[in-house]
């Protein structure tokens, strides 16, 4: 089990190989369908984004509400392919990592190689377990989207697997 810290350096990304089990610590941002659509539309219009994505890792998640006394509700990954349409534009703007579940299309993989980006898979459906590694949550943008807002997650030993590395090697079964 490799321990890695955020933000990811290019050297750290080089060390990550498809199939590696990792524990991630540090600060990541979140975003799923609706937030991606908004970010993409801003990029299309060449406008400023409401959050900094350069050098960041984004987690595709829409958490359940937190019970009193919990930092966050269950928060497992959502299917990544729905973000494929928007992803290359975000990677061109400097996003360095993605966490989700399931397959990516070839355009995303090509853009990952070009921009030196890594894609992690978290375990879909292990939401209560994963939420244990999320220590602090803050809304960064698009609060009106509720669960689909962009949050900042402070994580400690967040469990994931390198699904596609920056060289384009994949561990996902075909």
């Amino acid at each position: 089990m490799k321990k890695i810290n955020l933000p990811l350096t290019d050297d750290a990304i080089n060390e990550l190989k498809a199939g590696d089990s990792v524990l991630i610590s540090g600060v990541m941002i979140t975003g799923r369908d609706a937030a991606h659509k908004r970010l993409y539309e801003l990029i299309e219009k060449n406008e400023e984004l409401p959050v900094n994505i350069k050098g960041e890792v984004i987690y595709y998640v829409g958490p359940a509400p937190a019970k009193p006394g919990h930092a966050v509700g269950p928060a497992g990954p959502t299917s990544s392919y729905r973000m494929d349409k928007y992803t290359p534009a975000l990677l061109d703007r400097g996003l360095k990592g993605m966490i989700g579940k399931g397959a990516r299309n070839q355009e995303v993989i090509d853009s990952m190689i070009k921009n030196h980006v890594v894609y992690f898979a978290a375990i879909g459906g292990a939401a209560a377990l994963i939420s244990k590694s999320i220590k602090k949550v803050e809304v960064l943008a698009y609060e009106d989207l509720g669960t689909e807002a962009i949050y900042q997650f402070e994580v400690e030993d967040f469990p994931a697997i390198v699904a596609i590395d920056a060289q384009g090697n994949s561990v996902l079964a075909k």
Binding site: K67, G124, L129, S131, K132
Partner: peptide
Amino acid sequence: ENHKIAAEEEVPICQDT
């Protein structure tokens, strides 16, 4: 393990309820 945590803490098994 996730099922165990969800049942003990009475939180959803998956965030997609």
